[in-house]
């Protein structure tokens, strides 16, 4: 592939991406899609944000953060608290993102010193500690002001989630295609070599971790405005880490398309089986996940490339 090929390809990607976003924008106004489809797409958008956020750390720096739920949960909780204390909902939403950043700085940064498996179990342990603490401090449900349901229809929530998903993809795209992206790949491939060339691993890992937390926090805020009533402890459960992780791994680590593809897959699978088997879809997801890790370590995206190459070589 030469440079013009590559730029043509990314041009094509922009066009496709733009058309898809346009379809999502026009969908609710042009068709009478109903609450069910909109909520499903809402979930899908939140999954895109969370899996992109997870992938930013997991895929691009190779550090598997098992504590994403803490940042999502803190976004949900703080947005709810700000909102119910009379602050404007949009400001509460933004504040949720910054609370997640603050959390990343206080409890996340110490774990940045950990490498590999230590990082993973450290983040998981802190997320669980936070979940238990939150459960103790806010054992009951939290409510948004009564005026909320007049201001926010399902359509508003839909567009907010769509907007956040698009924002997330743009942020991730800009980041990984900048000099920061080069440094991240270098660090992931060989930390010592990166250091020897003047790349500071800590600085870059921290940057990415903070951005990732910010996105997860915003996702939490959007989720709060969708749900209205929230029970904090449920938003801190590891499921909120595991879902995005599975989506990113199945789709393809370290790519932007991967988490998108994985989210489609995950949300559809969840929806199909939740009608018939309830939580049992996790069994199928789990098996699929294991198979992907073992046989397609770079996810469905890679297998798409492999199949395309196979065709090319045949022709």
């Amino acid at each position: 592939m030469n440079e013009t090929d590559k730029s043509r390809q990314s041009f094509l990607a922009y066009i496709v991406g733009g058309v898809v976003v346009l379809i999502f924008i026009l969908l609710p106004v042009s068709m009478n899609v109903g609450r069910y489809v909109l909520s499903l797409l809402f979930t899908f958008f939140i999954y895109i944000v969370l899996s992109q956020s997870w992938n930013l750390v997991g895929g691009y720096t190779g550090q598997f953060n098992l504590g994403l739920a803490a940042y999502f949960g803190s976004g949900v909780l703080s947005c709810s608290i700000f909102y119910s204390s009379g602050i404007n909902p949009i400001l509460s939403l933004l504040a949720a993102g910054f609370v997640a950043i603050a959390l990343a700085c206080i409890i996340g940064l110490p774990t940045m010193r950990l490498r590999g498996v230590y990082f993973s179990i450290g983040t998981l342990a802190l997320a669980e500690a936070l979940r238990l603490t939150v459960t103790n401090l806010w054992p009951t449900s939290l409510y948004v002001p009564a005026t909320h349901y007049e201001r926010f229809t399902i359509l508003t929530n839909y567009y907010m989630a769509l907007g956040l998903a698009v924002f997330t993809i743009i942020v991730v795209h800009l980041m990984v295609n900048s000099r920061i992206g080069m440094a991240l790949t270098a660090i992931r491939d060989d930390e010592d070599a990166a250091k020897s060339m003047g790349v500071s691993p800590t600085k870059h890992k921290v940057t990415v971790f903070v951005v990732s937390s910010f996105l997860a926090g915003l996702a939490g805020g959007v989720f709060t405005l969708f749900r209205g009533v929230i029970t904090p402890t449920f938003q801190f459960t590891p499921e909120w880490t595991f879902g995005p992780l599975v989506a990113a791994c199945i789709g393809g680590l370290g790519t932007i398309v991967g988490p998108l593809l994985g989210s489609v897959f995950f949300v559809i699978l969840q929806e199909i089986f939740s009608q018939t088997l309830g939580k049992m879809h996790f069994i199928i997801t789990g098996i699929l996940f294991i198979l992907v890790i073992l046989f397609l370590p770079r996810g469905l995206v890679q297998s798409a490339t492999t199949i395309r190459q196979l065709f090319k070589s045949k022709l």
Binding site: F64, G116, V117, L245, V246, I283, I290, I293, L294
Partner: peptide, 19 residues
């Protein structure tokens, strides 16, 4: 192997717990 063992056994949790 270590990192992947963690991911795979994580998948195993999903399977076993729900089973």
């Amino acid at each position: 192997r270590l990192g992947n063992s963690m991911l795979i056994t994580f998948g195993l949790i999903l399977v076993l717990d729900n089973l």
